[in-house]
Design a protein around this nucleic acid. Sequence first.
DNA 1: TTTAATCTTGACAAATTTAGTAGGGTATTC
DNA 2: GAATACCCTACTAAATTTGTCAAGATTAAA
Lengths: 143, 143
Amino acid sequence: MILSTKGRYGLKAMFELGLQYGKGPIPLKVIAERQTIPENYLEQLIAILRKAGLVKSVRGAQGGYLMLRPPEEVTVGQVLLALEGPMAPAECVTDSESPKCKLASGCVTRGVWEKISHSIHDVIDTMTLQHMIEEQISTIEKE
Amino acid sequence: MILSTKGRYGLKAMFELGLQYGKGPIPLKVIAERQTIPENYLEQLIAILRKAGLVKSVRGAQGGYLMLRPPEEVTVGQVLLALEGPMAPAECVTDSESPKCKLASGCVTRGVWEKISHSIHDVIDTMTLQHMIEEQISTIEKE
DNA sequence: TTTAATCTTGACAAATTTAGTAGGGTATTC
DNA sequence: GAATACCCTACTAAATTTGTCAAGATTAAA
């Protein structure tokens, strides 16, 4: 159940944007280099994040990308939702209406999926980019 | 991040085997019908579960499959691990040795993956097939 | 105003995974 | 020996993943 590179690369990119918050745009090339992500591929990922309203772009020389909101207000869950789709083990426990599964009462696994989904969301909807940044700082200090 | 049908079908099949525990073998055909799973496909899935030591088979007429251990001793995590691989969002937080990721200290996302992984395992390593059966019974009673 | 940096879009594609289907072989029981 | 049921392998269509590549649009700065 490993996430795809979309989510993994995307969250790393958002971390870099979070570090840079308030300091003007940062070019994609720099993010790609720092996190070792193929630049052309990252382009596609950040387009998704832009459409999701998480980042905006500044064109032209000295341009780049920047976060719309401060890192305290952006959760890991928002980033992963945009890139990976709903972070739930089955469709029937997704927020979106799921009229497909009419076995609601007959389904023997639904309870399991609900519990997994809740436990994941407890983490990702609570954790923000700011938390990631702070954790990173304390890790470096210990070295 | 929806699970594949492997895990979803497989857990449903294990539930049926759990219900039947102690009552002799149950043919695959019956499981497939009850849970609406393509029989030939389920054959492949149960082969995986057999190799993982979760079920055993009895060949010939009146044969079928049965669980090796009582449903109280089989966790959802064991089933999903066999069918879906490690239930973690990234390789680096898998139990198996992961020498690939040497960025352990430099990786900015590892902390996130660890937390997600822990929260998932809190659920799936605790929940057994017996729990699923009990939950199902109480659901039916309420109707 | 030219140039260079940068974003934007869309096409292409190899590799892998998913979700099966199909069919022949083997063991057991009645 | 016929019926039942597991066992194994091969095949495949479709989707997803993980990129690459090229052309063009936009803007800042010299």
